[in-house]
Nucleic acid binder design. Structure first.
Lengths: 165, 165
DNA sequence: CTATCTGCGCAATATTGTTTCGTGAGGGTG
DNA sequence: CACCCTCACGAAACAATATTGCGCAGATAG
């Protein structure tokens, strides 16, 4: 997956596609300064090599009735690999849980959740999350507002310096 | 933006595009059960109405040399709107900060950060984040591994019940 | 019953994606 | 220095898709 190194053009391609994943190949080629065929070839290579994991439409949660976003900090009673994996498997299945990250430190997992309203989240919290086996404690924090939401990589590496890969 | 209600086909379109944002329109039309032209028209409406905020390639951070993901829990000294906004503006500019959510409770902000390695994150942490005005305390947690990472909306609403919008 | 509105599907055209092929620029070797 | 090998690019041809315009059917109201 790291067999082929990336040149400047490849990085530009990734940056452009991260910003606009539906850009046409001709437009992409124009922006990165090469013609369409080699540009498409590079994109295919980047996809096959795993640099590009997929393409997704960004949906506005609120417009679809999901007014509530919550971060849930979860501590478990046992941190054995078996129990960690069991909790992760549960998290994967819960629809309201969109992200599940295992952390170091006091907190074992942080979950990003969405819900139509507070009531349905509370139901999930009490009936599913805190009731799950091995869960020691859950601290939740409502998202008041989102100041920045740009998952991915800083290509404008003003500080996040360009990689060595 | 909520003027037009969504029918079952619209929701299917959103679900499909969230799963694969580069699906061709004919494929999308086939999956949702209508012909291509009206399908494309619906997509345009959904885009213009703000249901679809954009399309993005999902880039693998590690393949580009960003080996470290960190959640930073930030508390401020002052929670006046002026000071909150000032901090948010800073967070928007820091390249390593990919998400910045304002929370209720003890923690004022949670930041999702990426970095090439621990050293560069520590530099950011000590030189930028904790050194920023009005920052009272910062607790950081390294991401050990990611069990689920599907930002967006649960369309398989097994529990996150279909919306009312 | 008729008029109107809305959304679909069909067909034609413009645009784009994809493959094929020939060329030229490095890089290593005799 | 000449040779060859590899690799990536670009031009052209072809296939697929996106996009537009038009006619038609079902729903609703008058």
């Amino acid at each position: 997956m790291h067999g082929t190194k990336l040149d400047e053009i490849d990085r530009k391609i990734l940056a452009e596609l991260q910003a606009d994943g539906r850009m046409t190949n001709v437009e992409l080629a124009r922006r990165v300064g090469i013609s369409a065929p080699p540009c498409l070839r590079r994109v295919r290579v980047l996809e096959d090599a795993g640099y590009i994991r997929g393409y997704h439409a960004e949906i506005d949660p609120r417009s679809l009735g999901f007014e509530v976003q919550v971060f849930a900090m979860v501590r478990l009673q046992s941190q054995s690999e078996r129990d960690l994996a069991a909790f992760e498997e549960r998290a994967r299945v819960w629809p309201l849980v969109r992200e599940c990250h295992m952390l170091n430190g006091e907190i074992d997992f942080i979950l990003k959740c969405v819900a139509p309203d507070l009531t349905s989240f509370q139901n999930f919290l009490t009936h599913d999350l805190t009731a799950a086996p091995n869960v020691a404690s859950v601290k939740t924090s409502l998202v008041i507002r989102v100041a920045k939401d740009e998952p991915g990589i800083p290509f404008d590496g003003t500080d996040g310096r360009p990689p060595l890969s």
